[in-house]
Design a binder for these strands. Structure first.
Lengths: 138, 138
DNA sequence: TATTGTTATACTCTATAACTATA
DNA sequence: TATAGTTATAGAGTATAACAATA
């Protein structure tokens, strides 16, 4: 019996490789794609480093380098937070929004293709199990 | 609407971090845990580099370093293949089998906990979607 | 000619611990 | 004292291209 977590890890590797191939012209690493896409689903395409870390499952120390590169390429900006000066707000630039939209489109395109032959409830059920696994590991 | 792939990536990060924490005394990286566990579910705890790469969703070039370390720590051996001398057979040692068993146990333990409040069909349905996503990305 | 696995190189990801600034 | 984020360091993961051995 193969643990689900091994299937989970394989699926993550394979789908990330697919995305970087499809979006090769963006010249973004898997983690950079992930950060852009996560930021894009935040209200106004903006959120704090902590929030992005929680969404991506990545520690702030890892995000610093990723954010550095995205900032250098003008895909996002670092802004001061209105009420807490310790906090950094990351915000997609127009160019970042354009890139992130392509990432999200590539993701949903792959998902639609994969789910096309499955019951319409599959996606929601799948998300529930993912959440349960994340919660169980917390 | 958040793409499933973002949830997938977060769940992978979070569960891998959980496993490395729970199994900290093994002193194994996430990819080493993954390789050991995948090898453990092969017949006789043995398979070729290509087979392990296919199971883990990792390229042979990446496996070389991982296998090097596991071999140095006597958790697996590299053997010649009986009929194809280009091929390398990886085989868990007794110590590797012991470690891999702990990895598999930690994985199934987390899965049971996560799935305990969900319908009994959830695990199988989940695996089907993971497979569909992997196939769709191939 | 094609395939299996390794090597070389360069870059990215990650954990840990220490640090700054702010709360 | 605690928290948000960064820096420093060292090790691990990854892609690409080139390579040796074998098929």
């Amino acid at each position: 019996m193969v643990p689900l977590l091994l299937d989970l890890q394989r699926a993550t590797h394979v789908t990330l490789h697919h995305l970087t191939t499809v979006l090769a012209d963006l010249r973004l690493s898997p983690s950079e794609l992930n950060a852009l896409a996560n930021l894009a689903v935040f209200p106004d395409g903006a959120g704090t480093v902590s929030e992005l870390g929680a969404a991506a499952g990545v520690r702030p120390t890892t995000l610093t380098g990723i954010v550095d590169r995205l900032e250098q390429r003008d895909l996002l900006t670092r802004e001061p937070h209105a009420r807490d000066r310790r906090t950094v707000v990351l915000r997609l630039t127009p160019a970042g929004t354009t890139a992130a939209t392509r990432v999200l489109d590539a993701m949903t395109s792959l998902e639609r293709r994969a789910l096309s032959s499955l019951p319409s409830s599959a996606a929601a059920d799948f998300a529930v199990v993912l959440q349960a696994l994340s919660d169980g590991a917390a």
